[in-house]
Design a protein around this nucleic acid. Structure first.
Lengths: 110, 110
DNA sequence: CATATTAATCGTAATATTGCAATGAACAAA
DNA sequence: TTTGTTCATTGCAATATTACGATTAATATG
């Protein structure tokens, strides 16, 4: 086994879990925070910033790019990464109904 | 390898990634949604509701319980699960600064 | 052209996660 | 006590993820 049974869940449930997976590793959280903190796009200083090897960072960047949360273009010898604003907003709109489910009616009965 | 290097990241980054991991599987998303949707606590109908075997559901419940997002008490032969309101609120407060980082200053420069 | 720089990709090893059959523990009911 | 019900735990197999050395590809620079 070890294979998630995506087909028995709704599209929304799968979407939420895929987006959450992006944040489910501290390196990816750190990468995204760094992309938010710097003024310009990042051009390769992520490897120095975070203490992981270059192929590892590259792999995390690839995952974030595949999800659309970041984007990157080739800029001479280096690649320029930045947050994809539109998709970041869409991500929040997908997660929001789930995270902000109504707690007021809930009774802590156990 | 295959071992996340938690020690090189901040406490906050690790905290965010651990919480995100709770939502990084559609079964756990479905379980939490179900606990929100029903009026009372759930007493074992999760296995019927979601199409996974009982040990699998039990395992996902255990992870959610360890994170504090749900709580459960023994109630006769069955166990009663519900959302832990306080910890759910805390979780949102932990994720919020990360998810709601300021996009307005960002320029999509690549 | 030769060399340096930067980042992606490949290959591989180690650990983590997912899923379930089998079993066990606790309790209720006959 | 015996049986049935419900859920946790164990043990195991399969897949996924994480990490990095080695290599490759692309482009600067001398």
């Amino acid at each position: 086994m070890g294979l998630t049974k995506s087909e028995i869940f709704t599209v929304q449930q799968n979407k939420i879990s895929l987006l959450a997976k992006a944040f489910a590793h501290p390196a990816r959280v750190a990468i995204l925070q760094h992309l938010f903190n710097i003024d310009t796009c990042v051009c390769g200083d992520l490897v120095n910033e975070i203490g992981l090897a270059q192929p590892t960072i590259s792999q995390h960047l690839k995952e974030l790019k595949q999800l659309g949360l970041i984007q990157g273009n080739i800029e001479g010898t280096s690649v320029c990464y930045c947050i994809n604003k539109e998709n970041w907003t869409n991500m929040k709109e997908t997660l929001s109904p789930f995270l902000n489910q109504d707690l007021s009616k809930k009774v802590t009965c156990c």
